[in-house]
């Protein structure tokens, strides 16, 4: 008879291991029995798959990136730097955490100092991005107030300049259309034309016509009727020959008697751009 009130567990335990099973020595838990995949994502928190680095491995002689240096870097570069810094800090924080748990103070060591330096670089990246964003917004706000005046002044200078068929003026025109109308030097395959782009086309086309019409004797074409004509001028080079070529095309175009309404301008210019890109690809 059992002395215990509970009998089920004991009975069950006896039954659990069948008598045929041979008892073997226990397998002690050891790190050698654990295998981790080579590409396990958590390896990113370890340097060279080491538990903790040596003091000498984190010794450094440099300093954090300064704001002045970071201001010269593109978005891609800053993003890359941020990523590198973040990964390094992950490793360092893990190591510092281990030191803390063991009661050692890593503050005196290079781990904490390096961590702080990297942190400095990181907040400076944020600072630079904030500055850029503010600068962009301020520029847009200011352009709303005196953008028209600026364009008018540019136009006057262009029309009154002695010779505009120089590299300097070509560069200026290119920079203007990039800066204010967002017309890039080289178009991507999936470029989307917007109102601003159309405005730029109109401004540049008109500018070229006003400058060279008298010189080549085609003043009878004025006023230019629609965006198609202006785009022809915009596309040609900013020289007397280019404008003369465009004028010839315009004359040809006017035989059709089609005038593009303002509502369809964006669509039409998009078509022109796509045609242009296709023809370039074919070449």
């Amino acid at each position: 008879m059992s002395r215990h009130f509970h009998t089920t567990a004991l009975v069950a335990a006896r039954k659990r291991i069948p008598p045929t099973v041979k008892l073997r020595p226990p397998i002690l838990p050891t790190i050698n029995n654990i295998t981790v995949k080579e590409d396990h994502p958590l390896w990113q928190f370890f340097h060279d798959k080491k538990f903790v680095r040596d003091q000498s491995e984190v010794a450094f002689t440099g300093r954090a990136w300064s704001v002045q240096e970071l201001r010269r870097k593109s978005w891609e570069d800053l993003h890359g730097l941020w990523h590198v810094c973040l990964k390094e800090r992950n490793k360092l924080e893990r190591e510092i955490h281990i030191f803390r748990q063991q009661g050692d103070n890593p503050v005196g060591g290079d781990y904490q100092k390096l961590n702080e330096e990297i942190h400095k670089s990181m907040w400076r990246i944020k600072q630079v991005l904030t500055e850029r964003d503010h600068a962009l917004k301020n520029a847009q706000k200011e352009f709303k107030v005196n953008g028209d005046q600026y364009l008018q002044e540019f136009r006057e200078k262009y029309l009154t300049a002695e010779n505009v068929e120089t590299d300097e003026w070509y560069d200026k025109l290119e920079r203007l259309q990039q800066a204010i109308f967002g017309i890039p030097e080289l178009l991507d395959a999936d470029f989307k034309v917007d109102l601003r782009f159309v405005e730029g086309v109109k401004y540049i086309g008109q500018l070229k016509f006003d400058r060279f019409a008298e010189q080549i004797g085609r003043t009878e074409l004025a006023p230019l009727r629609d965006v198609a004509e202006l785009y022809t001028l915009f596309e040609e080079s900013a020289s007397a020959e280019g404008v003369a070529e465009a004028c010839a095309k315009i004359e040809e175009y006017r035989e059709n008697d089609i005038v593009i309404p303002a509502s369809k301008e964006v669509k039409v210019v998009q078509g022109f751009v796509e045609d242009k890109l296709e023809s370039l690809e074919a070449e």
Partner: peptide, 23 residues
């Protein structure tokens, strides 16, 4: 040290503000 960046890389300019529309 291993964390250093060469000066020519640090001084290289890759950002130019060229438009008030696109960034």
């Amino acid at each position: 040290c291993v964390f250093s960046t060469p000066p020519e890389v640090a001084e290289e300019r890759s950002h130019v503000e060229n438009s008030i529309l696109q960034f």
